[in-house]
Design a protein around this nucleic acid. Sequence first.
DNA 1: CGTACTAGTCTTTTT
DNA 2: GACTAGTACG
Length: 805
Amino acid sequence: MSIYDTLNEQQKRGVFAVDGPVLLLAGAGSGKTRVLTHRIAYLIDEIGVSPYHIMAITFTNKAAGEMRERVDSIIGHGANQVWVSTFHAACVRILRRYIDRIGFDNNFTIYDMDDQKTVMKDVCKRLQIDTKMLKERAILSAISSAKDELISPQDYQIQAMGDFHGERIARAYVEYQETLRKSNALDFDDLIVKTVELFKTCPEVLAGYQDRFRYLMVDEYQDTNTVQFEFIRLLADKYRNLCVVGDDDQSIYKFRGANIRNILDFEEVYPEATVIKLEQNYRSTQNVLDAANAVIKNNRGRKEKALWTDKGEGNKVHFRQFDTAYEEAEFIAGDVGSKKRRGIADYGDFAVLYRTNAQARMLEERFILEGIPYDVVGGTNFYARREIKDILAYLKTVDNGRDDVAVKRIINIPKRGIGATTITRVQEYADERNISFYDALREADQIMTIGRSAGKLAPFVTMIQGFRSKLEYYGLEGLIKDIIETTGYVKELEASGEEDAEDRIHNIDELISKVVAYEETHEEAGLSGFLEEVALVADIDRIEGESSRVLLMTLHSAKGLEFPYVYLAGMEDGVFPGYMAITSDDREDIEEERRLAYVGITRAKEDLTLTCAKQRMVRGETQYNAVSRFVEEIPAELLDQKVPSLKKWNYVDYDEGSEEKLRFRAKPFGMDQTERGDAGGDFRGNASVNGGADSYQRIFHKKQTDSARHKPRATAVPKRTPAENRPFIAGGGAGSLKSVNGLSKGAPEAEAVNYGVGDRVRHIKYGEGTVMKLEKGPRDYQVTVVFDGAGQKIMYAAFAKLKKL
DNA sequence: CGTACTAGTCTTTTT
DNA sequence: GACTAGTACG
């Protein structure tokens, strides 16, 4: 009896075919991770390959972590020698060793999107590019696409000749790269581009890695882009033992440069490739699988596969249409709550998936109201929050003084009376001498143009130097605490009276815990290492394996995950498929959305619910949407409820003002019956008959008026998500839920509290509850209260304003 | 130099 | 609706 006996025939072929290139076409839920892990075990145990010679690339750190765990448990010894990581992490690791050969310091910083935007703004100013005509965002995305395609600034310039916009972008691209180089910084795309560049300019480095990684495996291969493909192609070139695993039906990252041709043309690049299809689905019931297959078969140009399952038929797919998005959220939260109460499922068994992050808000409100624990994945990354970025900028400045973006961010935070003019002068001085901004600061007294302000700069430099010299002996934890203490950052926050100051302080405490945890888990815990980890984590990476919370996330984030109960919310034309895809004349765009639908449906193991609303607010406008075409593509016999005919839908008249936007105006619900009659006819029909620009009629808009009353009642909705409801995974809407009662303004004081454990107290939003715990924190008392309605909350006493009853 | 208010933009989706 | 950049004023 061997570990391989549990695999099916196709899976076994995948495990045993270790020589040469292999293309594993793995349908959703077909056990591809099992194949990969068993394959690694087989290589080590049966073929005698050293773990040292194996590399597996995944898309997220979470996936990497899971694979690592499974490999560990199968083979035990030496497993840690296998490189299991994401493209980005692997590249960083390589660049940290060798990037000095292509003109960077090995302690380079990694710029996130925010930093990129800051740099680009600066670049546009220098090049006098009118950002009204050509937005920074657009330039950055053009540059990003160029990098995905391995097009250098020089290539870009040549290609762009004669094109007005193109030439500007090209110049910006050149300048941008130059700025990054001066700052000793790389952006996300550079991590891979520079690694490829390194391999091409330093054959001896490449040869070393080629010899090391004799067996390569790449997961989620359908989502690789051209640079990433080049990276693995180079690595695999010597031994050609490259095994790629993917599913063309799950390719959903075209916007990020993912090249679906990488998987479709694999056999052309590697004619000797073995192709294996995994077609047995171990995840979903027949009904779910049939629904998924019915939808995806509307796409052209896919590799034909026949997914099957021996699980039973299962429940029908549920479908519900509601009048408003509010009612939709109410239903989902209610349904989850009732299943939990009836003991059918635990909170951790549910996921709610949606197309855009913005949709999370309304769901959150309802979940809070129902007292259902949940986590939101995605939205604004924890590390992208203002206060976190500020503290990180201090860390970056200490780590790499050449990181101009970081230095400029904190030079006047907290306020030191250093303004825009001073900063400009210093920058001019730095430019003249071709030194970094920070180095210019050190010579502040030499800068004639800034006059008295020079005196304000010296203490800043002294402070940073102080941090640097002390870092040696007090470590990362000491450093971060020193920074907060010396700058008075938290004190400033407390005094600011900002509404979300409490949240921010919480987040900073969370960051400190992160630092401590990092130091505990890493033997040589360095500043660069910590910053790197911070830069490379995705939101999804932070979900714990066994959580007992409902997960809310986008369809994109859900890829690779599975849940017994799945809700797909917002199944409306205009939301999903999105407005952009519908209006696009590239058929590929709708097909990509359809693949996204396929991904969403196939996340469900037992039970799938599709919901939509007739009316929903999007960006302050009320939209009237028809049921998603993807729902209509599912045969009626698989659904538990009929999909309403489009004929019910009606518009009232043209909105002259927005005619050019190709939108119709409709009357909101609540109008009298005659107006809600069937004046409009079948919009699908209109859409196809008219064709062209006029055909876009399935989305209706109306300026918000009376629909506001559909918003949740103010009283019970907390302004932000309670801290314990969202550990710091949560980005999304934290702090953005509409404030109703609002916390009273003014600086809270850490005064003594007049209540104790066991006392009954009243909170302005949560109502009455009992104090469970009272802890003296670093700055303030932390009070744990179990509220009668809202459940347990942990809060700072100064902010909570609890009244003893 | 700092603050408070206003007007414009925005959204797909993420390593 | 929400966030941000830009502007006018103290």
